Simulated assay, not measured.
Amino acid sequence: MKLKVCGMKYQENMQAVAELQPDYLGFIFYEKSPRNFDGDIPKLPDEIKKTGVFVDASIDFVIEKVKKHNFKVIQLHGNESSQYCRDLQSELECFSETESTESIEIWKVFSIKDQFDFEILEPYEGIVDYFLFDTKGKEKGGNGYTFDWSVLNNYPSETPFILSGGIGLDEIEKVKEILKTDLPIYAIDVNSKFETAPGLKNIEELKIFKEELNRMREG
C-alpha cells in the first residue's frame, strides 16, 4: 500500500515530510487552490515520486512543469477528456525517450459523493495508469471530508486506484476495513486533514498515520 501526501507548498515542510518516506509527494498547479505551488522543490530522495497536480491545464503547461521539476506522475484533477489523456501520454512518452528517463505515470481523478456512474471510466482504460477517487465538493480537492466508500463496492475495473478525500487519523479504522476487500487499491492519498494551514503539514500526525499504514502493509 503506497502513501501520497499532496498539497505541498513550503520547502522546510517538504523536507520534513520527505523524511517520513512517503511514496509520493504532490504539488498543485491551480491558481484557485490555497495550495497552489509556485516555487522550487528542494532535493528530495529519489525513491519519492514527485507528482504534479493539474486542473484543465494545457498540455504545454504540464510538459513545462515536468521539465522544470522532474515529475514522475501527472495527476489530472479537472474535466480532462480521454483524448486529452491520450495526447498527454504521447507527449510524456516522447519526453521520457528524449531524456532517457523512466516513464511518467498518469492518474485521472474522478469525484464521488453518494453515487457514481462507473461507465465514465471506460474511455480512459488503457490510457491512464491509475484512477483516483476523491470527494466531490466545492473545491477541487482538499475539501476535508470523505465520500461514501461503499460506492466502490461496485467498481468494475481491474485498473488499480488511489483512495483520496478527507482521510485523516480518524479514518484509520475505515481504511483498515476497506483494505480487507478485494478492491484494487494502490495507494492512500492524504492532504487537508493533516494540515495546520493550507499546504503546511503536521509532521507528528503524518508520522502516526504512516506507522499505521505500515502495520496494515505488514498485516
Rank of each mutant, 00 (worst) to 15 (best):
S96Q: 02
I112C: 06
F95T: 07
S96C: 08
Q89W: 08
E80W: 05
K108W: 12
F71R: 02
K113L: 04
F118I: 13
K67L: 12
E99I: 03
Y130L: 06
F110A: 10
V73C: 05
L88M: 02
I104Y: 09
K113Y: 07
G78K: 02
D117V: 09
D129I: 05
H69D: 01
Q115Y: 05
I63F: 05
P123S: 04
E125I: 10
E91D: 14
Q75G: 01
L76Y: 07
E93Q: 15
V73E: 00
D129L: 03
E64D: 15
D114I: 03
K108S: 08
D117L: 05
F116L: 06
I127D: 04
L121R: 08
Y130V: 08
D129R: 00
N70P: 04
V66N: 09
E125F: 11
E102Q: 04
P123G: 03
W107P: 01
Y124P: 01
I106A: 00
L88H: 08
L92E: 00
L92S: 04
N70A: 07
K65F: 15
K67M: 14
K72M: 06
S100R: 11
K68H: 13
E102P: 03
K68L: 12
D129W: 01
F95S: 02
F110T: 10
T98L: 05
S100C: 14
